[in-house]
Each structure stands twice: as C-alpha cells, then as structure tokens.
Design a protein around this nucleic acid. Structure first.
Lengths: 167, 167
DNA sequence: ATGTATTACTTAGGGAGCTAAGTAATTTAC
DNA sequence: GTAAATTACTTAGCTCCCTAAGTAATACAT
C-alpha cells in the first residue's frame, strides 16, 4: 500500500503548542458536531442562536436584538445576519423591527423553533457527555477554566487593538 | 449589569461548558490570528500548509502529496484542495503530478513560498507567546495535554463511525 | 486482456466566519 | 429646522470547512 517512509508516531510533536492543539481540537469537534446537528436539520451556529434565544426566554426576554446576539455568540454582526437569515428562511426564527426604533431588529423563536430546541435538548446531554468521555470530570472542569482564562486574555488584546485603531 | 444569578446546575452541566468554552476560545483565537496572518498576505489555513511543507523539507522531503497534507492538517481532502489552489494561484506553492503515478499530486514550496515562511517565522514565536500570555507555562502544557487527549478520543469516535458506515 | 475495483484527487454546492462598504433610522449640533 | 454624525443592521466579496458526486489513473481478478 506504499505507506510513507517510516514516520511511526502518527502525531509527531511538531513544535506543538497549546494554540495548535486548540485549533486542531476544534477542527475535530466541529467535524463531530456538524453531522450531529445535521440530524436535526440545523448547523452548529444555528443551534447556538436557538439555544441563546431559548435561554433568553427562560429569563423572561421573548427576543434578542442582533447586536445582543452577536455579542453573546462572540461573532461579528454580519456573521450573525447570515445565520439568522437561514433560520428565518427555515421558519425557526422571526425577525421583526422594534416599533420605537426601526433600526433595531428583534429576533425570536417561532413555534417550530421552540419545537426544534426541545427535540435537540432531548438527546443533547448524552451527546455532549459522549464527546467529552475522553476526560474525567475534573479534567473537563480544568479544561474549561484554562480555555476561558485564555479567551479572556485574548479578548482584552482584541479590545485594546480595536481601541487603538479607533484613535 | 445583569450578571447571571446563581443558576449553576440549573441548566448548565459541566460537560457542556467545556465544549462551549472550546468553541468560543477557538472563535476568539481565530479572530486574532486572521488579521495577524493577513499582514503577510496569507490565511491561517495557508500558513498551516506552508509550515507543514517547510517542516517536511527539514526532514528531507521536498514535497507532500495531497493525502499526506490533508491528514497532517486534520482536514478533508476537498478542503486541502481549496487551500492549495489559492497557494498555487499566489505562487507560494507548486503542484506537480508524480510521474510513476499520475493520480498523485506533489505539493512543494516555491522560492516565494520559502521566503514567506521565513518572514513569518521571524516574528512567529513572539506572536504565539503574546497570545498565550494569559496562561503560565505550566497551564499551557496542561491545556495542550487536555486538548490533545480530548481530540484523540473524538478521532477514535469518528473513525469508528466511518468504519461502521463502510460496513 | 479486459472488465471491475480502488485510489487520488477535484468539482459542485452549502454554511460560517471575516472585513469593508453600503443603507436607513435616529440623535446631535448649530 | 435642517445638516452632520452616529447607530443598527445588511450586502458584497473573500477564505475555509464540510459532504456528495464526479474524473482520471492504477491495481486486481478472472
């Protein structure tokens, strides 16, 4: 089968740093999540929006504006527009202008959207659990802590840069 | 304002947080890396290819075939085709058929590609270091370990699924 | 030797992220 | 009261990832 000249260890540490590990891990997570969500006729990003709206409802907010949504999802406004476009097209979400300020668009779950959230939630915990089964609960907690700490540092950097740009 | 009150175990199991933390951290990393690489006229994915080819050269392989590349980058073949397409278009990489087997395409760095790698490498360590400055060296090592462990688990899952599919 | 598999890669089509450049609606300034 | 700025969001255009369905070239099997 003409295997490449003996490079035994499949994952040779190529100056592997935490950053590379993160990028690679995400890639694989994404490859697992995509088919999983596809079973429900949605994408990972769409699920993020649906879940965010569901949570907002649980807290007494029937809808979220685009800026809120994009902030909570940590994506830029144009990216949020795209995801919401497809959710509206598929009838899972509605987009209505706020009467007091027509610039603002309020996004909320439709009936079908609510139903879809419930369908996913029925099996979601099990899916997440199986994906993380390679780590102990303690390790999961530690991983989460480290990732969050790292993200906060990077966000500070980003904000500093944007501020500098603005001046 | 509006800090979420003590609703810890209410609807947020630990497992979900680790995955969510990963996805969010990646998003922010990506947002920092993209402008960084843009300074060199390349994308993050393009850098991965260039670095992989550079490393191969260091090990005595002047080129890599598409399958090798896609395996090393942990992306599917069609994705690799796309990235290489753009690198060829920009003159950083060449794509030549292997005479003994015309199905195989050998990818290698051009002069310009070599130069670009060196340009990036000149400042790369500093960039990585600054991005990871939010964590101690010990924490970085631990983060890397956890991410790799998690990735390996997921890859096993993926392979099992693909195998099942094939049967 | 010839027809069938298999392999290596590409094409087509869709979702998602980004930046830069719009377009309205609202606010501020004079 | 009108002109200029600001705000909220969308559009356009790029890269990247994916899956499914090609297209050649090579290997296999009879």
């Amino acid at each position: 089968m003409h295997v490449s000249p003996d490079r035994k260890s499949a994952e040779a540490p190529v100056e592997e740093n935490a950053l590379r590990a993160l990028v690679r891990a995400f890639g694989v997570v994404d490859r697992v999540m995509q088919p999983y969500f596809a079973r429900f006729g949605i994408s990972g990003a769409q699920w993020s929006v649906l879940r965010q709206l569901h949570r907002a409802e649980g807290e007494g907010f029937a809808s979220l504006r685009m800026t809120e949504l994009s902030k909570q999802l940590l994506i830029r406004l144009p990216s949020a527009t795209g995801v919401v476009d497809r959710l509206v097209r598929d009838g899972l979400v509605s987009r209505v202008a706020l009467p007091e300020d027509l610039r603002v668009k309020l996004i909320s779950l439709t009936e079908a959207g609510q139903q879809r959230v419930h369908d996913v939630l029925k099996v979601h915990d099990r899916q997440i659990e199986s994906m993380l089964a390679g780590l102990s609960v303690l390790e999961q907690t530690e991983l989460q802590r480290l990732l969050t700490q790292m993200r906060m540092h990077l966000e500070t950097q980003l904000n500093a840069k944007e501020f500098a740009h603005r001046v």
